[in-house]
Nucleic acid binder design. Sequence first.
DNA 1: CGACCCGTTGATTCACGTCAACATTGGTGG
DNA 2: CCACCAATGTTGACGTGAATCAACGGGTCG
Lengths: 259, 259
Amino acid sequence: MAATIIAKLTALHPLPEEDKALLKSVVGAGRLLPASSDVVREGDRSQVVHVIIEGQAYRYKLLPDGRRQIIGYLVPGDFCDLFGFLLKRMDHSIAARTPCRVAHLTEEDILVLQKRPMLARALWWSSLVDGAILREWLVNVGRRTADKRVAHILCELLMRLQVVGHAGPNSFRLSLSQTELADTVGLTTVSVNRAFQRLRQTGLISQTSRDITIPDVSALMDYAEFDATYLHFREPNDTRPDDRSANRDETTARAGPET
Amino acid sequence: MAATIIAKLTALHPLPEEDKALLKSVVGAGRLLPASSDVVREGDRSQVVHVIIEGQAYRYKLLPDGRRQIIGYLVPGDFCDLFGFLLKRMDHSIAARTPCRVAHLTEEDILVLQKRPMLARALWWSSLVDGAILREWLVNVGRRTADKRVAHILCELLMRLQVVGHAGPNSFRLSLSQTELADTVGLTTVSVNRAFQRLRQTGLISQTSRDITIPDVSALMDYAEFDATYLHFREPNDTRPDDRSANRDETTARAGPET
DNA sequence: CGACCCGTTGATTCACGTCAACATTGGTGG
DNA sequence: CCACCAATGTTGACGTGAATCAACGGGTCG
């Protein structure tokens, strides 16, 4: 449970044991939310800070005509609205795309965490990386063709999944639908679908149902103009839990009888 | 000089006098950079934190073919790379679009500021707002037509300039070139130019050289689907009693629990 | 005066959106 | 076990918004 959030924050910022303990004590068990429900909704007055403990979610905004733009992915360990209590209200929503367990922290909790130097660093670091990804997405959507946008997000997914051990060296399971991808990269599902076809046709990717394999990773990255710098992965050494897809237990968390 | 940065951070977050003094002492005079030079460049190893004291700048990324995407505007008081020392290297560049005076702070400076509760809040607040703007830009670029993108950024500029007293109730001077606007909203200059023409034609804006007047602000905002919430102008720390957010499940649960 | 940036224009192309099916899959309940 | 349904993926025909290409005038600066 709380181990995942620590894993995330510890990933590139080893924390003292006491900080880990503090985190654990503050996070608690969390509450379970069903898939497709909103964790946080645009306009909410935020006095509570939400943390994803289990499951996957995404940030999004809706347009008046119902179209949607996804503006970020959340995985266990991510804060939905870190320091959100500094703002009057949420400017976007967050939806659970799988059943999610989410913890509710108070402003005081955050301020306590904030007092620990290493934790404060970890929080800032995580916020900086989120911002960097957002900027790259803006570049992607603003300046790249449909094919490259899709290729680029695939590269990003590959690397982000690898870091948490959910992807092989050149393959991963795509848990996002083409509709979700479309809303991520600012296209329609039809265009995303055709982009996929072209990427398959040119051999840049191969695909069996939702399983993506990339025959030549650097070829795809070159094509997509993908430069992983913006993900700010850790320097060498240290234990990387990469490789092996293992069993994906994240997605298996089903809405229990206890909601 | 250093007054501007304090103005920015104080804008929605009043600071104790001692914090202001601390800020002043830490910021110093800064150095002058010519227009069109880079304040910080992609790939830089960031050991120093840069703050804009005077002038205007923008964040941007270049694509291999030389095209550019602007990913943020900086005004006096903005940090170029707050806590950048937590990352290995800059993932984007920052260019001065006017001559800029920029201060160089050290990691220690930031950590000292960070220790002051109200300053720490102010820094987080400013970072949150930057993120919110970035998300709205992504929506703008990802899901809106050329005309609406331009209209939207004009609304944003109007409001942001108003807040610092650089715009009237329905007019402002556009200091950005159409090329810069194009690189902001993911279009070509030709398209931006034509969008302007259509906005003028329909009377949503009127323009004399670089001076923009908006006959009916709310008409333009409606057209652009502009909702200023994301700029978070209102009081940030307004700790009013409110209902404890009990369960949101009732409102969000979808699958019939009639089992 | 020439060089350059900026705004503007017209002609043309094409990438992507739109619309409207249809196929496939997986889950659900009878 | 199958019939059904919703979500997802796929396809074709067609329209269009924005990119592209190429030029031109005005202003400013050295």
